[in-house]
Simulated assay, not measured.
Amino acid sequence: MEELLLRVVPGLPTLVLLIVIGVCILLLSKGADWAIDGVVALARRTGLPRIVIGATIVSLGTTLPEAFVSVMAAWTGNPGLALGNAVGSIIADTGLILGVACVMTRVPMNKFILQRTGWVQVGSATLLVVIALISLWIMPEPVIKRGIGFLFLGLLALYMYATYSWAKSGGNQAMDGEAEDESDEMGIPKSFLMIFGGLFLVILGARVLIPCASECAVRVGVPQDVIAATLVAFGTSLPELMTAFAAIRKGHPEIMVGNVVGADVLNCLFVIGASASATPLAIPENFFLFHFPVMLLILWSFRAFIAMQNKKGYFERWQGGWLLGIYLIYVVLQYALNVNIPH
């Protein structure tokens, strides 16, 4: 699909591109609404917390296409794309999406779930960086080997099982911060259909929107490196962003938190794990100097906010501003220092 878009989009008139962008935005909006409605209904029927469904089913749906693209890129000789996709998405998910959400509205802090999944989120990313540093120390050219890829996939399976177990054992604590559901009840099959149908529309809309928007930016004179550092990087997290906005608009921000935390874990353990299992992933020098430090700064900041145990039960706006500020500085420095992440 990517190659087809790259061939077709440059030949389209600007008016057609603008119409396509408009249609894609509608697909993104409608798909995100369907996905959130499906999550709420599924939580109601199964008794699982919405934050947990966001951290597992929704985040798996939004990261699965990236995992597929990354594995295919690794197989076809572009392994740097996998690492770039994963690290860039983690930074955007936590810095941009969670940051904007905390600035916009009161985002509930489910301490029971976040004290557990939050440690997996920051722990998996820290483990990735530690392994990368060991590789840098013992190898002339650092790589993430296939054995590490299989290790990450094993840790992913443990994470999914542990998240379900925590939700089941947590009782009312696992539901902390979730508003009452007054929507019409639907069956479990229809709930799954809403979730995956909605995610399909969101991913389709994002896949078509970004090449069209990039082409429009080129035609008005925006430099290619600026497009790479902004639009293309932003595009990998667009499904998570749209589902986050839909969750906030419908009064269920806890789904957004679960999606962000789950997507970070999956980008690290699933995207990098699956890609490294296919072929060893070389680690470019700029990851050690720039991308890894920014990723850890954002994730450990989020971890610190959880540890602060806000008595009010939600994240503060200044905390969202801090995360968003790091992300914006990161994007500006990518362009200024010419350290664009591989895409």
Rank of each mutant, 00 (worst) to 15 (best):
F302Q: 10
L201V: 01
G197Q: 02
M72T: 15
S169F: 09
D93T: 06
A101D: 03
L158M: 13
A73P: 07
P108G: 08
S277R: 01
A92F: 05
I97L: 05
L15Q: 07
V100N: 00
N259P: 00
R303I: 12
L337Q: 10
S237Y: 04
D33M: 03
I21K: 06
G147A: 11
L15P: 00
F68S: 14
K312S: 14
G123I: 05
V39N: 08
G149A: 04
I306V: 15
T63P: 03
N259Q: 12
I36V: 03
A125Q: 00
G258T: 11
R219S: 07
G198W: 02
I227D: 00
L201H: 01
A125P: 00
F112I: 07
A73C: 06
N259V: 12
A43S: 15
S135Y: 00
S124C: 02
I36E: 03
A43H: 04
K30H: 06
V71L: 14
V20K: 04
R50E: 05
I283K: 09
A278F: 03
P49N: 01
V265W: 05
A73T: 02
P239G: 04
L114Q: 05
T56R: 13
F288S: 12
A233N: 11
A179G: 05
G99A: 09
H291S: 04
F302T: 06
C216D: 15
G54K: 06
V232C: 14
L238T: 03
V202D: 00
G262A: 11
K111R: 15
L231A: 14
R317E: 09
I272G: 03
V143M: 10
A132C: 13
V331P: 12
G171A: 08
L289M: 14
N85P: 10
W119P: 08
L18I: 11
S275Y: 01
D93N: 15
T105E: 05
V260K: 05
L269N: 10
I283T: 02
F302H: 13
V40N: 06
V332G: 04
L133P: 08
S124R: 05
Y164E: 07
V202P: 05
T163S: 13
K111N: 10
V39W: 07
N110L: 01
C212M: 01
I188H: 03
L289H: 14
R317M: 14
L153R: 06
V52M: 09
S214H: 04
A213W: 00
A278E: 01
T243K: 10
P239E: 02
A101N: 06
A263L: 08
R44C: 01
V23F: 14
G123K: 01
G31T: 04
P223H: 07
G187S: 13
G221C: 10
E316K: 13
G38E: 03
V129Y: 03
I138A: 09
R303F: 15
V143T: 12
M256C: 11
P13W: 15
